[in-house]
Simulated scan of single mutants.
Amino acid sequence: MPDSKPIVPVILSGGSGTRLWPMSRAEKPKQLLSLTAEETMLQLTARRASGERFGAPIVVANAHHADMVEEQLAAADSVARALVLEPIGRNTAPAIALAAIAAGGGAEPLLVMPSDHVIADVDAFHAAIQAALPLVRDGWLVTFGITPDSAETGYGWIKVGEAIGEGVHRVERFVEKPPRDKAEEMLAQGGHTWNGGIFLFRADIYLGALSSYAPEMLAAAQASMEKGRREGARIWPDADSFAASPSDSIDYAVMEKAPRVAVVPVTMGWSDVGSWDALHAISHADAGGNVVRGDAVVIESSNCLVRVESGKRVALVGVEDLIVVASGDDILVLPRGRSQEVKKIIEAMRKGD
């Protein structure tokens, strides 16, 4: 494959991001919000894969978000090569299949990225991409392993195997989200990375792997694209055909089964911003450790996260380690360290409807 072939960014933007309720909702999930900078997370993702090495992005999104996605990309000086509008969520493996087909299914290298992650060191990310490209051209499936800085139980891990190129290693094995003791053991051992869900591979190699390991998924994706509707860059895959696809992640469907899978370990200031606690950790705090955005007054308080986007004013006095988020008519209050439990609130509200 010639070196000049541009990398096609594939931006997965179908998630609902409910762990950042009440700001992130189904109608406007976290990737479409300005959480970590002036620009939205989708815009930041598009920008980090732009320039002469990259082609126009293919974005896979929820059909309800089509207008917002196009508007935000335009504001970030980006125009999608294709905007694939999923009729139903089927997890990452089928979504990437749609993108690979939209790319033409040839030898184009696809850089698959979730739309809602933070990468502080973009230069390190680009260096990791360059390290991976020789193997990608040779038909390997490459994932980027995040250098761990804690015994995180919320991520999958990767056991890094033998070096097969400069900065590139064979994946020895993928590790499920581990219990605390196993995570601490892997962190202490070294030779492990977090699985950040960012991939680089040729479109034809990925579709070929699906034909071997998930043929029903490939058939459903192909049928949905063949029967789909097109209007400019927008593609609506056929809903009935796509609904026939099994729902599975790329890790389970392909990466854990294929023989030629490599990992590039990289330290690049990565976060999946998967909770309010995670947002507090990566945000600039004041001298008291408070991260305050919006119309809020914080007095004699420490280590709090306060976000106000509701036209209301929030005041905190003499408290510590709180998360307070006001958005629309909803207000969230909970202790720092327990923000993963937002999902309990979502479940309780669903039962109450």
Rank of each mutant, 00 (worst) to 15 (best):
V8M: 14
L12W: 10
T18G: 13
R19G: 09
A26E: 15
E27Q: 11
K30F: 13
L33T: 07
L35S: 06
E39G: 13
R47K: 14
G51Y: 10
E52N: 11
F54Q: 04
A63N: 06
A66Y: 07
Q72M: 11
V79Q: 15
V79M: 13
V79Y: 15
A82T: 10
V84G: 04
I88C: 12
R90Q: 11
R90A: 12
T92P: 00
A93M: 01
A93F: 08
A99V: 07
A100W: 07
G106K: 09
E108P: 01
E108A: 11
P109Y: 09
L111P: 05
D116R: 03
V122D: 02
I129D: 07
L135V: 09
T143G: 13
F144M: 00
G145V: 00
G154F: 08
V160W: 02
G165L: 03
E166F: 09
R170T: 14
K177E: 14
P178C: 11
R180Y: 12
E184L: 08
E185S: 14
A188P: 01
R202W: 11
G208M: 05
Y213Q: 02
P215H: 07
E226M: 08
R230W: 00
E231F: 11
E231W: 14
G232V: 05
A233R: 08
S241G: 01
S245L: 02
P246M: 10
S247D: 05
D248P: 00
S249W: 11
D251K: 08
A253Y: 03
A253R: 00
M255Y: 15
M255V: 07
K257A: 12
A262Y: 10
V264C: 10
V264D: 11
T267L: 12
T267V: 08
M268P: 04
G269M: 06
W270Q: 04
S275Y: 04
D277L: 04
A281M: 09
I282A: 05
A285G: 06
V292H: 07
V292L: 07
R293N: 08
V297K: 13
C304P: 00
V306W: 01
R307H: 03
S310L: 04
K312W: 06
V317D: 15
D321F: 10
I323R: 10
G328V: 04
I331R: 02
R338L: 09
S339I: 04
V342R: 00
I345E: 01
M349P: 08
G352T: 14
D353P: 09
